[in-house]
């Protein structure tokens, strides 16, 4: 990332390189590009997740369906027709699609044929993230905690004490970021070697609150290749730079509940948003960085 390198070079010269690392919206948004509707007629959309080809999968939670958006044609097809109210989704390095089955109180991993393996049982869950090594974290808002499942399938609670919802890893997987439904900040926690979490800090703040609202409505998140973080909120998609500074709000595609975002498309250069009854995408200047592609990228 060139701007970061500039900062490192300048710092020893004892000048301050605030501007060198600024990440304004103009680096992300393309003038004239608008949200395009990808699909409509759903009850409540959630869980957008991208596979290695850029196809995006999402859920219609109350209707217990998982859909697939083809990266090349944009065609939407049903992937799983009885998903037990699956909510959050994410692809793992093994090519399976991990999901939070709220109805069955399970975490499962769907195989390409739509059948699934069980990852964890007897848990309530909402959103999920899978790292490049197969570690899984998922949120449990009902019990105000965050779970970890290691690659051997052992599960344990690794953080608790606030009402989490969305969960994501930083681009290089060193920090787990978790939303707080009741506060205008996101929690950052250091990821330990064993998947444990340490050093909780409300570093991503302040979130923008719409007028007359005291909760941000922060929900699903994604990160891009340069390290920006994007979080779906009532006010829109709020973006943070690599120093965890608020750096702009991308307007919602429609004035309804925005649940989640992810990068998809053949070049990972479209932002997909699940917004109540519809799913949208927006072409942007930046690219997503799914964790399962890290090995391929030589990181």
């Amino acid at each position: 990332m060139r701007s970061f390198v500039v900062g490192l070079v300048v710092a020893p010269l004892l000048t301050v390189s605030v501007s060198a690392q600024d990440m304004p919206l103009s680096q992300v948004l393309i003038d004239g590009e608008q949200w395009q509707q990808v699909g409509q007629g759903y009850k409540f959309t959630e869980g957008p997740a991208v596979d290695q080809h850029g196809n995006v999968f999402f859920t219609d939670v109350p209707d217990s369906k998982i859909y697939r958006i083809d990266a090349k044609t944009g065609k939407v097809t049903v992937f799983v027709s009885d998903s037990a109210r699956t909510n959050g989704l994410m692809f793992g390095p093994d090519g399976r699609l991990y999901g939070c089955l709220m109805g069955d109180r399970q975490i499962v991993a769907y195989k390409p044929d739509g059948s699934h393996d069980v990852i964890a049982t007897d848990v309530s869950s909402n959103d999920i993230v899978v790292d490049s090594r197969g570690h899984v974290w998922f949120t449990d808002p009902a019990n105000q905690q965050v779970w970890h499942v290691n690659p051997n399938g052992k599960k344990r609670v690794v953080a608790k004490g606030w009402r989490p919802n969305g969960v994501i890893l930083s681009t290089h997987e060193g920090t787990l970021i978790v939303t707080d439904s009741n506060a205008p900040h996101l929690w950052a926690l250091r990821v330990e070697q064993d998947g444990g979490l340490k050093f909780k800090s409300p570093s991503y703040q302040p979130l923008v609150l719409p007028p007359n609202q005291d909760r941000p409505g922060s929900d699903g998140m994604t990160v891009d290749k340069d390290g920006r973080l994007y979080v779906a909120t009532h006010a829109g998609i709020q973006m943070f730079d690599t120093q965890m500074r608020p750096s702009g709000v991308i307007l919602k595609p429609q004035n309804r509940f925005l649940s989640n975002v992810c990068f998809g498309g053949t070049n990972f250069d479209h932002l997909y948003a699940t917004c109540s009854d519809k799913v949208y995408r927006l072409k942007v200047k930046v690219k997503g960085a799914p964790y399962f592609t890290r090995a391929k990228r030589g990181e």
Binding site: S170, H172, E173, G174, T175, A188, R190, V191, E192, Q193, K198, S201, S203, G227, M244, R294, E299
Partner: peptide, 9 residues
Amino acid sequence: PARQGAKPR
């Protein structure tokens, strides 16, 4: 960072 390849916060 605690993990290899991760960046400091």
